[in-house]
């Protein structure tokens, strides 16, 4: 099943390159580590075979459409005199969440729709390495083998099968729109409405008291080492200069002092309010497993309730924070 999906994917990529519809394909290839994949940039037909797609393709590739992150690889491969426009046409492999991010990037005028060919791909969720590691007591995995609803993990002196539903990312388990919202071609079968039960993303924290919630975040945020992997992995954090990097005025202290760190995370969440597509890239990128999810989920829920908007579903939408309705609820204002 996975294999044929990959073959279909390679065919599609090859076709796009041979027909010169794109100059570059952004996809996934194998990483030397088991359970991991790595983003790859393919310009030539001969390299198409390194493309893969499986449970480990966790990166949100839309990040690479940002201007700041792809100045170099956006340069056209072909002679600029041949191409009328000095722009690189990009083919990008997109899971549902990547596609939602691409929609947002187009809406926010960060990329031009006509420069991008979206290869939508059927995705049933990706592995949460932390969950896997927790369930295997941190033992190193050397090999894995996905079966129907199980994954078999092998290490130096163990073999263990884990239920797929236990080790998928939370953002995948609660993904309400598992099919790409935009695509030029689609690989595989649509998955929405299929076997898995989807629940609305929820956070148990809402039932706690103010003090308990504060304690929870105090614990989580103190793990942050300020490496900004969350920000840099986020497809929608594309400011040329992040507010946390501003020096005049310097809004944020640079240490891991709690209030500075937390202010950074809150600010980032507020900046992505109504834009966050819930892909979970920030959470997977974190080397110290800070649980940022509740912040994002809470905001997106509020946005949906108040303004009836879910990010990344339609190219005709107006981002909620860039518009208003005269009748917006204002129960909190005196």
């Amino acid at each position: 099943m996975m294999r044929s999906l990959e073959n279909e994917l390679k065919e599609c990529a090859r076709k796009l390159l041979t027909e010169k519809k794109v100059d570059l394909i952004i996809g996934y290839s194998k990483s030397p580590l088991p359970l991991r994949s790595t983003p790859c940039f393919i310009r030539e037909e001969k390299d198409v075979d390194s493309l893969i797609f499986d449970l480990t393709c966790s990166n949100n590739l839309a990040t690479y459409l940002q201007k700041s992150k792809c100045a170099e690889h956006r340069k056209p491969n072909t002679d600029p005199t041949v191409r009328m426009e000095n722009r690189c046409k990009i083919g990008i492999i997109a899971k549902a969440c990547d596609a939602r991010s691409i929609v947002q990037l187009i809406l926010e005028k960060q990329v031009k729709k006509e420069d991008i060919t979206v290869i939508g791909i059927a995705c049933t969720g990706i592995l949460d390495l932390k969950k896997v590691s927790d369930r295997l007591n941190g033992k190193e995995i050397l090999n894995y083998n996905p079966q129907d609803d199980e994954v078999l993990f092998e290490g130096k002196d163990f073999k263990k099968a884990l239920k797929l539903s236990d080790i998928l990312c939370d953002s995948c388990k609660t993904c309400l729109n598992p099919d790409p919202s935009v695509y030029d071609s689609f690989i595989g079968e649509p998955v929405s409405g299929a076997k898995t039960e989807k629940q609305e993303p929820m956070t148990e924290l809402e039932n706690l008291s103010f003090g308990e919630r504060w304690e929870y975040f105090e614990h989580e945020i103190s793990k942050c080492i300020r490496c900004y992997a969350c920000r840099n992995a986020c497809p929608l954090c594309y400011c040329e200069e992040c507010v946390v990097d501003r020096t005049n005025p310097q809004w944020f202290g640079k240490s891991t002092e709690f209030s500075d760190t937390f202010t950074f995370h809150i600010t980032r969440m507020l900046d992505t309010a109504g834009r966050c597509v819930g892909c979970g890239a920030c959470i997977r990128a974190c080397p110290t497993h800070v649980d940022l999810a509740p912040l994002g989920i809470k905001i997106e829920k509020e946005i949906k309730e108040r303004f009836g908007y879910t990010a990344g579903l339609s190219l005709d939408a107006t981002p909620p924070m860039a518009t208003f309705n005269e009748d917006d609820k204002e129960e909190f204002i005196m």
Binding site: E212, I299, P320, D328
Partner: peptide, 17 residues
């Protein structure tokens, strides 16, 4: 008003009274 609504929700969520 939209900004404030989100800010207020988030602040209360993280435990600011």
């Amino acid at each position: 008003r939209r900004k404030f609504a989100i800010l207020k929700t988030l602040l209360e969520f993280i435990g600011i009274e």
